[in-house]
Every structure is written in C-alpha cells, then in structure tokens.
Design a binder for these strands. Structure first.
Lengths: 208, 208
DNA sequence: TAGATTGTTAATCGATTAACAATC
DNA sequence: TAGATTGTTAATCGATTAACAATC
C-alpha cells in the first residue's frame, strides 16, 4: 500500500501534537491516546490518528501512545533534531520581544543574528546579540548558513527585504508584516497578523 | 434564493481583502477587480468573488469594485465601524510590543487597559497607559465594557486568566500563550504561536 | 453593441469523520 | 480471552474552482 503524501494542513498540526506531548511529559505522564490529545486540542481523535498515519504507525493497539516516543518521532519528522539558526530582521518593539522570547531555544530555533537599518539601533545589544547593519544581511546569512528568517519590519520594506533574504539563501520566512510576500517556488512563508485575527473575531461580536 | 451563511473560513479572509483595499487606496487607486486582489493575496479571483457573495453584491458588472466602497462595506460587515477597546493581559516583552503596536488604532481596536501580576510592573507606564494590578481585571473590564482581550501571559497562567476574562464579559480572546484554551460556546479564540509556525516550515527544509 | 467582469451554479477536489478490522 | 485503542478504509462533508449567464 503506497502512502499518500501528507497534506500541508496535517503537517501544520504536528507542532500542536508536539506541544501537547511536551505538556503531558511536563505533567509526568508517560502514555496518552488520540482521544486525550484530541480533547486537549479541540480536535477529533480520528483526525489525530489520521494525521499521524501519514508518517507511520507510532502507537500500540489497545494501549495508545508512549509520550516520549511519539514526541521524539514528531521532532524527527519536523526536522527539529537540530537547532536552526534564525535571522531576525527588524529590531523595533516586536524584534525586541522576539529576541527575548524564551520558547525558541527549547523548540529547535535560535536567533543567531539581528538586523536593522536604523543607525541608532545598529551596534546596540539585543538579548545576547548585537544589532547589525541590515546592509550586511546577505553576507552574514551566507556566512552562518541561515535558512530561516523572521521578518519584523514595516510593511513597505517587507517585500524588498524578503527578496534579499531569499537571494541570500533563506527558504522559510515568518512574516510579521501585514503584506502577502511574493516569493519563488520552494520558499515557505507563514504570516502572523494579529490585526487580521482581531478583525476576524470582531465579525462575531454583537453590535452595541 | 436564500443566502447560505458565510463559512468561518471565508469570514477569516475578509480582513485580508480589507488590507489589500487599504493598500490600493494608499496607492491612490480608486477601482480594482477580483483578479487583481487575488494576485496580491495569492488567491483565485473566483474565491474572492465567492467570499464576497456571501454578504452581498459589491461590484459592478464589467467594471470591478470601487476601492473605497468595498472597503467601507467590509468594515461594516466586520463590525469595524467603531473602535473596540481591548484589554491586554501581560506586560512582558510581548505586552510591550503589543502596547506600542501602531496598527491597532487604524484597524478598529485600541488597547484600553493593561494588566500584570508583577508588583514591579504594576503602576509603570506602558504606551499611554499605566499597568494595572491583574487582581482588578474583572472590575476594570466590566467598567469599561470590554469584550476583546489579548492574552500575553505565560502558558501555565493562560487558562485561569481566560476564565476570569470570560466571567468578566470578554467574548473574543487573541491568545499568545501556547495552550489551546477551553472556553464556553460563543467565546471566540484565535491563537498565535510563532514556534508552531516555524516548526511547520521546518518540515520542508532540507536536512543538512 | 462589444468588451469586460461580476455573481452564481455545478463540478471538482480535498479534508474530516465514522466505522471497524487489526492487534496488542 | 476480553477489553481497549490503533491504523485504515470508505462515506460524508465542506471548500475551491471552473464555467458562464447576467449585466453594466
């Protein structure tokens, strides 16, 4: 039986499963099952079993899943067995929050370089790093073999910076600018737009 | 012909359409069409026309859409003709970035109160506001008639705070904590988890 | 009128769920 | 073995797209 390629939407849920497994482990739990994981995430148990089945069989019939084992498997599948160095572009308020975000390290990522164009910011410390001149973006990214970037620059600068990142070898961009980036085939982009999320929810609020 | 209720996934794209219309307007454009909007968002023109059709007919046959008119209609549909006061819980690095985020005001939202439990933070200024004791959460939220909150607290505090928010009248939560909140029917939650997004993209990166 | 683009229908595609045989 | 839960299939559900009549 040939296994169908996992749809992107299923891949996108794997990090949630990983998150739940980490939580379970922190609670001292050693086994779980698709029903319990589903409850914690508001998903059906069938969906969880189906998503996992794209990648293999990780459970034991009648007994569920070993928390540590499934967690390790998901980390392997998601390419998280190494620490990915990440370039952060933009050292404004958001850049500061991201540079100080404690969860990257334990999750497989590490901010390895921070850039800005503002002369007042260049040279200043940010977390463990020093803000570098964005003019040196390509150079530093190539030197450090960075393939993941976080874009925290103003909307009007985002597309240009994205193109420079891609030219320098970046293949995944977490984009905080409210712009749909145009990138070549093979480059992944995920957009984070809190305003769009708030507006989405506002639709359901009662008019007062 | 009875109009089918708009699916949530279509509602969630309306803010993107609104964003594009604002951009077009900033560029001085007065008309557009579904093809152009689709190009800018990486969506098909059919999808845009279909999404809009759940709410009415906003275009002109042969001529496309009037930018300002469609923008106004989307603002009306999304309940953005008023400024929604928003409670921000958590005055850490992320809270600071959010309190200083310039885009809320022009988008229909305004951070109206900031809370934290840390005595070192309570009383300190944050943007135009003063950080208040989280003990007074319910009181302030009720007083100000706040129904939208942004949760920027540590994961282990998130569920408890969410319950207090809901009890105080909040009906929409933008959740930055890496936890799937359990909330009653009728309360909307949107989760923002940059780590999950990075992990999603890491799946597609070449193993090195 | 000719040309263009909407709004809508129907077809297609893909994702979720229900159900259950497999199996520990 | 009895009980439990997986992994997988097939059915269902829902979203997207193609196509085109409507219409300015």
């Amino acid at each position: 039986m040939v296994k169908r390629k996992a749809p992107d939407i299923a891949v996108g849920r794997l990090p949630l499963y990983l998150r739940v497994l980490n939580q379970l482990e922190a609670e001292g739990r050693t086994t779980t099952n698709s029903q319990e994981m589903g409850n914690r995430l508001g998903l059906s148990s069938a969906q969880i079993r189906k998503d996992l089945s794209y990648f293999g069989g990780f459970g034991r019939y009648g007994a569920g899943y070993d928390v540590a084992y499934l967690r390790d498997q998901l980390r392997r599948i998601l390419n998280l067995e190494r620490i990915w160095p990440v370039a952060l572009v933009g050292a404004g308020h958001l850049g500061h929050a991201l540079a100080n975000y404690g969860r990257f390290g334990e999750s497989g990522f590490e901010i390895a370089a921070v850039f800005d164009t503002d002369p007042a910011k260049i040279g200043q410390p940010l977390g463990d790093l020093i803000v570098q001149d964005a003019a040196r973006l390509e150079e530093v990214i190539r030197e450090q073999g960075i393939v993941i970037a976080i874009l925290a620059v103003p909307a009007q600068a985002a597309q240009t910076v994205a193109e420079r990142l891609v030219a320098a070898g970046v293949r995944a961009i977490l984009n905080y600018a409210p712009v749909r980036l145009q990138v070549p085939e093979g480059v992944k982009v995920q957009e984070i737009d809190p305003v769009a999320r708030l507006q989405h929810m506002a639709f359901y609020l009662f008019r007062k």
